[in-house]
Design a protein around this nucleic acid. Structure first.
Lengths: 239, 239
DNA sequence: ATGTGGATATTGGTTATACCAATTAATAAA
DNA sequence: TTTATTAATTGGTATAACCAATATCCACAT
């Protein structure tokens, strides 16, 4: 994250854009006005705008103004993640996309990982689950371990693209897992499924690993869908 | 892409970092030195550095300097794409990752698309292939149509994540397709496979669509691997 | 009343200069 | 040799100013 004064301005402006305080297509106040509003110099504002432009949130027309772009249309994965961060909500279609995406990429990753995993890597995953086991009530610890567990398996699978995509979601991953692990019975059941997966990886059994990952993810899907049943088209991610 | 003077500086500096003219971990020259080197003001340099920092290429330590980060480790998908743009080369592992990734995501997308595709969308894809057919020798046209064809199908599938990931590769997609369509016999064979896929989509046959997409992508893989056989660990993407 | 041309104010793009605070390097003192 | 002090360097920030292109508005001619 960007630090300092320009970083503060950046965050505020980005939030204003995402919350549509500045609607798509509208013109932002001039740099001079913005600098006055934020009590900062024009350059702090310019730096923030430059980064917003890079991120696909605005586009600048010299001698005319800076305009809000359709960031859903022109944005990247990082844009989506930033939108999720600010809104702390996800629409149903994007949630379904995400869960389906995880299913196909991570089951494949598990199968690949089974063929490649080393003793050290097995040991690392084992420690990860032990840590989970020893912190049954600590949601934050469970969340962090969960990310690490899945990220590590994708890393072992060797697929650079999947790894980078998964990495992109790190800033909002906790939104989902905090919610998930707060559901009664989930930490225990989840740990059990993780251990099943770990054993399959230890046997270098690709088919069983794929199956175990599928079970793990489908269990997660099921619990999440149950919890948000009737939640409308937009699902809040805040606790 | 960033325009103007800061944009020029940004591109040069990013290229220098990616080419390891400034090695990972090293300190960049001071802002004052850089501004002199590029014949620009310190602010133009600062704007460029701010964007580089946002992209995970550098990190700034006040009163000490700006240092090159390990952008492969901390970077996102966009980082990888920018690296490919500059290097015009891809290592074997990343190429394999990319092809495998496409296979699992796009076969699934084709199956989903078959269930959702509308008459207008079918018509659009049909026109796309007709355009391809009428420009048999025009590599640039074939490349652009190819991206559009696959991107449209992913869009129809409704998976937002897959769509955003595919979108991220747009800036370098041509590197691959320009190479691909230059191979003798490929344009014709590829078109034939695309048409088979289109027919399957038209019948709303998910299984056949998945199969046809698989054939299309595996044909591409095969041709690419044949062409780069013995090409070492790094494959050049330049023509 | 309407359309047109041109003066004027506004906007982003860029530079120059300056000061601060913290870090680092050089230097002097113990 | 070690420590304490000083000086130079660095990124962070602000003010002021000018340019060139754009948008706006008003006077003028139709």
């Amino acid at each position: 994250m960007k630090k300092g004064l320009p970083g503060k301005i950046l965050n505020e402006m980005r939030a204003d854009i995402i919350r549509e305080t500045y609607p798509i297509g509208s013109r932002l106040p001039s740099e001079r006005e913005l600098s006055e509003k934020y009590g900062a110099s024009r350059f702090a504002v310019r730096e923030a705008i430059a980064i917003l432009a890079q991120g696909g949130f605005v586009e600048t027309h010299p001698q005319s103004g800076t305009y809000v772009r359709d960031f859903f249309r022109h944005g990247s994965l990082d844009t989506l993640v930033q939108v999720l961060r600010v809104r702390k909500a996800i629409d149903r279609q994007t949630l379904e996309s995400l869960l389906k995406f995880r299913l196909i990429t991570e089951t494949t990753a598990a199968a690949e990982a089974a063929l490649r995993i080393t003793g050290d890597e097995l040991e690392y995953l084992k420690k990860n689950l032990e840590h989970k086991k020893s912190h049954p009530g600590d949601i934050a610890a469970l969340s962090e371990s969960d990310f690490d567990f899945h990220y590590t398996i994708i890393g072992i699978s060797g697929n650079t693209i999947s790894r980078l995509v998964f990495q992109s979601f790190r800033p909002v991953y906790g939104f989902f897992t905090d919610f998930f692990y707060s559901i009664r019975g989930v930490p225990e059941a989840s740990l059990k499924l993780n251990m099943k997966l770990l054993r399959a990886l230890g046997r270098h059994d690709a088919a069983a690993s794929r199956k175990a990952m599928e079970e793990t993810l489908k269990f997660g899907e099921k619990k999440v869908y149950e919890a948000i049943r009737g939640g409308g088209s937009v699902i809040l991610l805040e606790r």
